[in-house]
Nucleic acid binder design. Structure first.
Lengths: 322, 322
DNA sequence: CTCCATTATACTCATCTGGAGCATAATGGA
DNA sequence: TCCATTATGCTCCAGATGAGTATAATGGAG
């Protein structure tokens, strides 16, 4: 009844509202051996997914069902990423509309049974330009930068070249700009726009032009993966989500290496510890391990209590205290 | 073809994937007279919305079409909010599944023609407990706090009461905890869970128990509005989106009052200016106005260039510089 | 057994940033 | 002319952050 009130007052609505196919799709992340990995299925590079059905209690539970069926891998933390619809990028004419509701899930790779259909692959296989842990990869300055600048130079409209150059510089940190690890999606979309990734050339006949290194994925899955990486890189900075990827106990260096794997860049060791400890995110277990070589390291565990205690603001407004 | 690869490897898929009705729904925000307003339609408290159709080029353009048809109001900035599916909250049995893809849009109230079907209403009409510009509203301590604590006390399971009390304290800033203006959705959901808002009692027969002040909305629109407010309150802190709500030129105090209207709390005047100016978000027009009383104020305009120049990180990791 | 490479952990120091408040400058109206 | 009011500039202080130095435990090489 209220349903009606909500829809009536528009002109083109003449009963021809039509239904749409809805897919649930997951970016499942784990960090294995300090490599950040995404879960894929089949031989193709495909993210786990499946249609949203009547039987599903909710979007999340539907997603859980699909992923666990397809990969035999249980999911822990889940959050919604984004809802995509314009699949025209892939080049298939939309006879019927498909919508993809994407999710980010964090787990650990407990090697259970049934791992045949599941495959972890480092996300840097798909985005080799994103790993700056050993400094900017040569690939960036040797291949990406010149290719992107050629694309900028090929702009037809007045001023469009300069605008492209600026977008490129901001996204990739060229010139004296800083590298911003969060701009994963912007970088991928720039490369797509410049025709430098395989997905951009699908449906265009035989491959034309030079492609940048990095595995392609099915459909628009690489874009969805980029969205997930960007979200995670952003989120680790203001929410204690890294711990979803850690074993129950760990050393501070293990924690640091995991963060570095995700962020794709190195952090200052002493300051990292200070940050973690002053926020009281962890507590000592009392045990130590010398598996790491050198002086034995204390083992810590996540203080689950912080989840409830805090809500983590992130002020950037000069609020008044009183 | 790859489509197939993506869907084949799951067990329950036996051709019975079914289609779903997809609605696009908008939280359209403007600040009128320092009151943050949402756009509603009809007599009911309903957000503008309409079904996603084959004719729509993309989700966003579909949304634009609906909102502009329903309200004759052009939209500027748009971003996706969240995709909702579990309408069971409203109490209607799902014969068919409905999915709502919600968007946040920012505009200014240029009073054009055809405003009959449009209606701006302060979002504090719906969430009176969210306006802390004049300090915590009496409503919070006089009504909400006792009612929520009664609910916490009514918990059956062991420990559940304490857990509820903690959630309440964090969400509303009780005890010596700080008020966090971003937790709009958590607060609404707590009140919903506690049965203190009208929506929670729909389909439950005649109203039972005491309701908190604040207008209800159709369906789950109030939850969607809460999501939009939360997103906006968070976003103004790290992206220059306020300017979408400002006239072309403005004084710094006008800008400040607008931010305060959105955040629901006061900011420190001098520090606010410092923040704005050091980030070079605005530039002087060279003119002044004395409409404000007292010493005439300089007029500023937004430096649109910053959109391109920066990408705004938000580091919270102790990165190494080299 | 000693030395050394390696990792862990504790401090120090300079700088930056954000929260607060004081002081001075222009207005219009009483 | 005085005053209320708003605008705007500047100082101060405390806590957070970036960076580096110093010391503590290990295991393994010689």
């Amino acid at each position: 009844m209220q349903e009606k009130a909500a829809r009536n007052s528009n002109p083109t609505e003449a009963g021809r509202a039509h239904d749409v196919h809805v897919d649930l799709i997951a970016v499942v992340v784990a960090v294995n051996g300090y490599e950040p990995c995404a879960l894929t299925i089949g031989e193709a590079d495909t993210l786990p997914s499946g249609p949203f059905e009547l039987g599903h209690r909710s979007l999340q539970s539907g997603l859980r069902t699909w992923v666990e069926h397809q990969t035999r891998h249980p999911l822990g933390y889940i959050e919604q990423l984004y809802t995509f619809a314009d699949r025209d990028r892939i080049g298939d004419e939309p006879q019927q509309r498909v919508i993809s509701i994407s999710y980010l899930a964090l787990t650990r790779d407990e090697q259970g049974p049934g791992s045949s259909s599941r495959r972890w692959r480092s996300w840097y296989d798909y985005f080799p330009w994103e790993d700056h842990r050993a400094g900017a990869p040569p690939l960036v300055t040797d291949l990406l930068e010149p290719a992107l600048h050629r694309w900028a130079a090929s702009a037809k409209l007045e001023g469009a070249g300069a605008e492209r150059r600026q977008r490129i510089a901001v996204a990739f940190g060229f010139g004296d700009r800083p590298w911003n690890e969060e701009l994963v999606l912007q970088r991928y979309e720039l490369l797509y726009e410049a025709g430098l990734v395989e997905e951009a050339q699908r449906g265009q006949g035989p491959a034309s032009g030079q492609l940048m290194p990095g595995r392609a994925m099915a459909l628009d899955h690489r874009r969805i993966l980029a969205t997930g990486i960007a979200r995670l890189r952003s989120k680790i900075k203001y929410r204690p989500v890294v711990f979803e990827l850690m074993p129950p106990t760990f050393t501070l260096l293990q924690l640091q290496r995991t963060v570095e794997a995700l962020a794709g860049r190195l952090v200052h060791k002493q300051n990292f510890r200070r940050l973690i400890e002053q926020q009281e995110l962890v507590e000592e277990t009392g045990e130590t391990t010398s598996d790491t070589g050198g002086r034995p390291a204390k083992l810590f565990r996540f203080r689950h209590a912080v989840q409830a205690e805090r809500a983590a603001a992130g002020t950037k407004l000069p609020l008044t205290r009183s």
